[in-house]
Design a protein around this nucleic acid. Structure first.
Lengths: 251, 251
DNA sequence: TGAACTTCTGTGATCCCTCTGAAAAGGGGT
DNA sequence: ACCCCTTTTCAGAGGGATCACAGAAGTTCA
């Protein structure tokens, strides 16, 4: 209840770090202030350095001095076509990696061809966890981030989640999860030992336009428990009146 | 009400401090004078710099020169919609963090979704401790406050309370608490060695519209004693005719 | 197109947290 | 010692929160 997000843990800033030790720089480009706002805040709270622009012109200007490592780029901009922005961004700094935001039906078209270059895309409406996960994948593949123990592998107790392979295992035993279950578990595993409210979970795991009740969270928690805690010492604990915690050891 | 404020202790102002050493600045916006009044008093007595406004127009004007680090914003204002105020506040200073006040049934609607940005909300009726805890969490995560040893961890003697994990331990031994017990203990631990009257406790831990008697305080104190002082040297002491103290060592 | 699967809603049952009321225990003063 | 007042403890009603189950709606894939 109390805390609402994702602050860097007690062990210091847990956000992505560049090889030079500074935070990874990301530029958010979208004409809807709600979107840039929520993305900027979340990314900042996750330890990224963030700049935001509302149209293509501003984005290009900003990119020139902000020198982002990555760009989150809406393909529907008021002034310039997303592709125009893209090509000029690339002219400016060829190394930058791009995460496209696009409407669901526009995907098949031409976006698919772009991902071949190592970039990636997310369809609107998206969930924050999805954006975060893709962005992480992008900069990791691009070699921007400092090499850590084993990137893309989350471990909590004997529970392992591989973000790249999308595989989950408890005590070496593989576990099959549906997409939503996977996202929920990833969110829990990225914030272990920390009580997460249903509202927080809803905000991060479900799409931003999801109008549903907190009830779905309870439902999916129960699904996860059946698959992950079945028979073993439970790792998902409910904190009555507050939310849920993922806790490794006993208790 | 007024008599139940907590002034800064003899050890000087213990309130939050900005990285520059000054007090954290918070703007309270609510159209009910009772609310702004009680919040302002409490926050001031906790060492914050406070300004208050009764409607959106005044809030925006005030924000321009007061330059708050955080805003407590009622979503039901007489003139402007809370969301309108929010977006203009953001336009003014994007870094500001916001704690929303909202009716219980309005939550599911649109407030959820805001917590994703790192902001937070509290439903009316609220308790002062709840507001304070959330506000603390917000500015801590926003990196406004000076970094202390381990944020979110309260220690008194061998008693520890982790606000993030919502865990309590006495002498390393974990203790299970219900939500109300937890809030009560947090309040006590935030003001150790200080006699707190039942009225003060009632005002801070219970919702402001709670009509009940001081009897519940005695009841919950007894619950806490059973769980925390059981067998050990007691830390919760009764000051007859006055209230209770939480004291670490002997005596 | 049909079958399998995933996601979400609704209902009811259960648990346990909160608070009330009353009785018991304790303190302090005369 | 006695009485009065405060504090503590006990027992239980009520209600909110959580969970389990079933099924409808939507999606994916062959």
């Amino acid at each position: 209840m109390a805390s609402n997000d994702l602050s860097p843990g007690p062990s210091g800033p847990s956000g992505p770090q560049r090889a030079d030790g500074g935070p990874v720089r990301v530029l958010v480009v979208d004409d809807e202030p709600d979107i840039t706002d929520v993305l900027s805040r979340m990314l900042r709270s996750e330890g990224w350095a963030v700049a935001a622009a509302a149209d293509g012109r501003a984005a290009l200007e900003l990119a020139r001095e902000f020198r982002p490592d990555a760009v989150i780029l809406d393909m529907m901009l008021p002034d310039l076509d997303g592709f125009a922005v893209l090509s000029r961004l690339r002219a400016l700094s060829p190394e930058v990696c791009v995460l496209f935001l696009t409407a669901r039906d526009a995907v098949e078209d031409r976006i698919a061809g772009l991902t071949a270059g190592g970039d990636d895309y997310v369809t609107k409406p998206f969930s924050l966890e999805e954006v975060l996960a893709r962005l992480h994948g992008l900069v990791r593949r691009a070699g921007v981030t400092r090499r850590t123990e084993r990137p893309g592998l989350l471990k909590v107790g004997d529970l392992e989640l591989d973000e790249d392979a999308r595989e989950v295992a408890r005590g070496g035993e593989p576990v099959e999860l549906t997409p939503t279950e996977f996202e929920l578990l990833r969110f829990l595993m990225r914030h272990p030992r920390r009580v997460l409210s249903k509202a927080q979970i809803l905000d991060h795991v479900w799409s931003y336009d999801f109008g549903g009740q907190a009830h779905v969270v309870e439902l999916y928690i129960s699904y996860l428990r059946k698959k992950i805690d079945a028979g073993r010492a439970p790792m998902i604990h409910t904190v009555r009146g507050v939310g849920y915690v993922l806790r490794p050891g006993a208790r």
